[in-house]
Amino acid sequence: MILGDLLDAPVNGPDDEPLGYVVDVRFVLDGPLDGTLAAPRLHGLLVSARTGTSFLGYERTGVRSPALVARWLRWRHRGTFLVHWQDVQAVEPGAVRLRDGYRRYSPDLPGRPSQRPDLHRAT
């Protein structure tokens, strides 16, 4: 499978009710060791009612500036949620189906202000 098969695919609930589209796929670097890094484990899918627009990450990161741009993009993607990969029942051609009793989580990126700690003054 390539990621392109998942991205922008429609997402249906257990009873085939449409929930939105896959706008991004979340990985966590805690899979089995592969070379120098752990392999990125497929953690979950980010689902939004809208697709086709670039959202530039504003709905998931703590960035709030410039305020107008941030607010507008967050508003465009309100209602985005995360589902765990375990809750995905099947990846069918052109659609993703979730299993019974799937749970929605907040799409916020947990504790990830900067990958460049060298750029932050020691606090």
Binding site: V63, P66, R116, L119, H120, R121
Partner: peptide
């Protein structure tokens, strides 16, 4: 403009 506000790129220099 957006990247100049992104701490992942800019750290404290946003």
């Amino acid at each position: 403009l957006i990247v100049a506000n992104d701490p992942e790129y800019m750290g404290e220099h946003v």
